[in-house]
Design a protein around this nucleic acid. Structure first.
Lengths: 205, 205
DNA sequence: TATAGGTTATTTGTCACCGAACAAGCTACC
DNA sequence: GGTAGCTTGTTCGGTGACAAATAACCTATA
């Protein structure tokens, strides 16, 4: 790799890191070009030069998190795991990621919640993300019903909504009480209660 | 009541309604003095004259919702209901309020999520709100354990976190998918699964 | 290998815009 | 006529965007 590429890569990385840190610490609205540049150790103008616009930067940031984390960790983890295991694995892979390095997840959640009020494009993006997420969860539940690991009387769609609600609500309380709310036990309990509820019980039915 | 008071009351009401509507439709960030005034049928200057500052307006708005709705509907509904009934009633009273008139709840949720990125004061306020809410839920669970309506092996604090997570997550998906996500069945399912999990089961243990 | 000329990365200067806040003035009520 | 409600004019700070200037780097050529 040439020195120019290295330079670009280093500054891009610094800018994205700075942007993420600002979003987590002070929120999306506080993320101005001047602040990003200063924090990254560059000028305020570089952000525009590199990403074109604020939207471009955010898009890149989300791609980085979703593709570099979700796709690399969450998807493979659930591959092979069927039915009830898939559901549990999906929740626990988020837990694992937070335990290892919480910054990416924090940025993602902060953007998710704050996107409600700002950009229509961002809102649309997260809306789609939730649609597919609900579909995936519901699919796993259906799979579990088919393979007998999940009791047949559960409604896959409602389950998907409830599980995702749990995830998002934990994320919200986590961000709201920076440092004082531990998401890990909450995720554990979410996983545990979900499994308990879904698992085929010999006595029931 | 004198005509002056009526006038003030009418304009105050109009301003608060407009502010709420803007928050719901376009988000907290889009809520500018000019927009509020225009929408309410007054000038942009009245907001400052009436509430002093933007913070003052938001404070008033939250008070109006929390004191005028939560305290009037939720608290009395759970009075008398003990243990498991209290938990279910609390969830269902939110459901009832949304079914009757969802605007207030929507405004509250929108502020909750967006406050993450804006005001520190707002964040602090919602942080406290969640603390007391968790404490209240945990108290109800403990009460239920004492009076035998809730199984003794549940952890009140973890339950409180999980239930509130469910509520917030449903709220988030509701706001994200304006018009396409129905919170009512989700709240029903949340209440049902919560009760199923908490209720003293003769076979268990 | 030295360096000139071109290319890419980064900074600085500047503009147009928007928002909150306040003050001075105007209008409705009493 | 006086007070309370409301409006208009204005200021000030801050923002994203872009263009022009500068600095770092790369390459071709002698």
């Amino acid at each position: 790799m040439t020195k120019q590429q290295e330079r670009t890569e280093r500054s891009t990385r610094a800018l994205l890191d700075a942007a993420g840190a600002i979003i987590v610490e002070e929120g999306f609205a506080a993320m101005t070009f001047a602040k990003i540049g200063e924090r990254a150790g560059y000028s305020r103008g570089l952000v525009t030069a590199r990403f074109g616009s604020k939207e471009g930067l955010v898009e890149t940031l989300i791609d980085l998190i979703v593709n570099g984390w979700s796709h690399k960790n969450v998807i493979p983890a659930t591959k092979g795991a069927d039915g009830i295991d898939g559901v549990e694995t999906l929740i626990m892979s988020i837990r694992r990621q937070i335990a290892r390095d919480d910054t990416g997840v924090k940025v993602l959640y902060a953007l998710m919640f704050e996107s409600l009020g700002h950009d229509v494009a961002l809102k649309e993006r997260f809306s789609r993300l939730h649609h597919t997420m609900r579909r995936d969860f519901a699919g796993m539940v259906r799979q579990g019903i088919r393979d007998g690991t999940i009791r047949p009387d559960v409604d896959p769609k409602r389950e998907a909504v409830l599980i995702i609600s749990g995830l998002r609500g934990i994320g919200y309380q986590w961000l709201l009480d920076q440092g004082r709310f531990d998401p890990l036990p909450a995720l554990d309990y979410l996983a545990q209660t979900t499994v308990d509820r879904l698992v085929a019980d010999k006595d029931a039915q």
